[in-house]
Design a protein around this nucleic acid. Structure first.
Lengths: 138, 138
DNA sequence: GTCATTGCAAAACGTTTGCATGAAT
DNA sequence: ATTCATGCAAACGTTTTGCAATGAC
């Protein structure tokens, strides 16, 4: 349990991420933020992205292209990344069940079995996962 | 188009991966191989893992825990990784459709929307993805 | 005054690459 | 003889960390 203090840098990072529809990497976000805060450091961007992920305000996307991507939309939804052009698309929850059929038009490669990765949490760990909250005071 | 020559190191890496049921990282595999080939270098392990992925003999798994994992089973199937203990489990193809229900017992967290990542290939890229084969001569 | 946050630079980590040597064809 | 593969070490890109200074409470 940790108390967060307000920081204009963190607010800026969050605001910037919410305004974007792409799913930028830390570095891409850093470049954007720099326009408003030329002195911000890359370390600060990483630190705050990690904090925002911990509080559940944003999502981290590990797509396998080297750098993690971030999503300002914390609501449950899926993602699809093109192996070739590396673009990341949102896939709404409702598409989950219909994916096997929907994917035929949307992206034939999506459910070929080689291209899907599930991340989750097993029963044992879910159990002892009771108190991982961070208090926010801003 | 590239021709591969036989190498006992590559065979050993492949054999070692097929015999394991876990999904080791390059480094973990390196440690195993070293017992048989004490002089093998980490670079060689990485180079051969990349080759084997390209020829489709093994699979690379990017799970978001820092290092890529590798799977000696090239047949289409899904994977599930526990966010806490980092273990990677196989999830058979048939489970895909039944996952939303099956997951309730197997791993309640698996289909919560935050925990799933789809990797695939969009129509455009699938089109120009004609000739990416590597000829193997061994 | 206390403790979180910052900027900076250095380090850490996984992975790739350049190069001279060695092995396969 | 040719060309691919190896071992080694250096370099790379991403992310984390130590530290002294600054800012929030």
């Amino acid at each position: 349990m940790k108390t967060l203090k307000y920081s204009r840098q963190r607010e800026s990072i969050k605001a910037c991420l919410m305004n974007r529809h792409d799913h930028p990497t830390a570095d891409a976000l850093y470049a954007s933020i720099r326009e408003e805060y030329p002195n911000i450091s890359l370390g600060t961007v990483y630190r705050n992205l990690n904090l925002l992920v911990e509080t559940g305000e944003i999502q981290r996307l590990t797509c396998g292209d080297g750098a993690d991507h971030f999503d300002g939309n914390p609501r449950p939804h899926y993602h699809f990344m093109c192996r070739e052009c590396k673009q990341v698309y949102d896939v709404p929850m409702e598409t989950m069940e219909a994916l096997n059929t929907a994917a035929q038009e949307f992206a034939p490669g999506v459910v070929d079995g080689h291209s899907v990765l599930f991340l989750g949490e097993c029963n044992d760990c879910l159990a002892k996962h009771a108190d991982h909250k961070i208090h926010k005071s801003a």
